Amino acid sequence: MSNTPHHLAEEFPEYAVQMRHLRERDGHFHRICSDYEDVNHQIHKAETNIEPCDDIRMEEMRKRRLALKDEIYGMLTRAEPAAEKLGE
Rank of each mutant, 00 (worst) to 15 (best):
N40A: 11
I43H: 05
Q18S: 11
E84S: 12
C33L: 07
T77H: 02
D38Q: 07
N40G: 14
D55P: 01
P13I: 08
H28M: 07
E14K: 09
D26K: 01
G87S: 09
N49K: 15
H21P: 00
R20A: 11
R31C: 01
M19L: 05
Y36H: 15
A82D: 07
D35H: 09
P13A: 08
E47S: 11
I32H: 02
L86H: 09
E37D: 07
A82I: 03
E47A: 10
T77V: 13
I32D: 02
M58E: 14
M61I: 01
T48W: 06
C33R: 00
R78C: 03
H7F: 12
N40D: 14
E60N: 15
Y15R: 05
R78S: 10
V17F: 06
A46S: 14
A83R: 01
R65G: 06
R25S: 12
R25F: 03
E84K: 02
A79M: 00
L68R: 02
A67D: 15
H30P: 02
P13Y: 08
G74L: 04
Y73F: 11
Y36R: 02
L22G: 04
Q18E: 13
R25Y: 02
F12V: 00
F29S: 01
Y73I: 02
R65C: 07
G27A: 14
K63V: 05
S34R: 08
E59A: 15
R57C: 12
E10T: 10
R25K: 13
N3R: 11
E88P: 04
H41F: 10
L22T: 01
A79V: 02
A9N: 09
A46E: 10
G27L: 14
E14Q: 15
T77W: 05
L68S: 02
E11T: 14
N40P: 03
H6F: 12
D70G: 01
I56G: 05
I72A: 00
G87R: 10
R31Y: 04
Q42R: 12
T48V: 12
F29D: 05
L22W: 00
I50Q: 13
E37H: 00
S2M: 04
R65Q: 15
Q18H: 05
R78H: 06
E14Y: 11
H28T: 08
